[in-house]
């Protein structure tokens, strides 16, 4: 990202490439690209699994992809080609790999536009979804998708230039 970019415009650029990578990468192994839907804050808490990755480059930013118990099971099974249960160690492995594959495509798309970056190894968090808020000095955006009527979401966090 060029030096003249603000964190807000960098976040927009990341968001565009993330959307494109979700369309291309997930469309490939799901058979069709997932549908983006408006993000709504859920009042209900539910079990979820999150895959997180950090990017370093002109801007430091992170990507978190989250699945509920039900969406994780069907998503991971389609990704791997064999059944994966939510509570198994393989589920963490599969969601980490999903995050990793997505990051690889995002990086390639950013680099094709002249924005070099690198990303780290994915980490996995399991727990119950709660309302999240960004800390000071961080801009964020959340994208929500539907796949086989099951939602999953992607949250991007970027440090602000303030």
């Amino acid at each position: 990202m060029s030096q003249t970019n603000t964190s807000a415009s960098a976040l927009l650029l990341c968001q565009r490439e993330v959307k494109s990578a979700i369309h291309d990468t997930f469309g490939m192994f799901l058979g069709e690209a997932p549908t983006e839907i408006p993000t709504q804050k859920s009042e209900q808490s539910e079990e979820a699994i999150l895959g997180m990755l950090s990017f370093s480059g002109e801007w430091d930013w992170s990507l978190t992809i989250g699945f509920s118990r039900s969406s994780a099971a069907s998503f991971a099974t389609l990704f791997a080609g064999f059944e994966i249960e939510f509570d198994s160690a393989d589920m963490g492995d599969a969601i980490g790999e999903v995050a990793n594959v997505l990051a690889g495509d995002i990086r390639a798309k950013l680099e094709a536009k002249g924005d070099e970056c690198s990303f780290g190894l994915p980490s996995i968090i399991r727990g119950t979804t709660t309302q999240s808020s960004s800390p000071q000095g961080v801009d964020s955006t959340t994208l929500t998708y539907l796949f086989e009527d099951q939602p999953f979401w992607v949250e991007l966090l970027i440090e602000t230039d303030d």
Binding site: F79, E97, G104, R107
Partner: peptide, 25 residues
């Protein structure tokens, strides 16, 4: 690998000595 930039592919095939390269997925 999930790495799929031209630089990474060149690094693997031309500099490190891998014989083939497949991007995930």
């Amino acid at each position: 690998t999930s790495e799929k930039t031209p630089d990474k592919i060149r690094e693997a095939l031309e500099r490190a000595g891998a014989n083939a390269y497949i991007s995930k997925p």
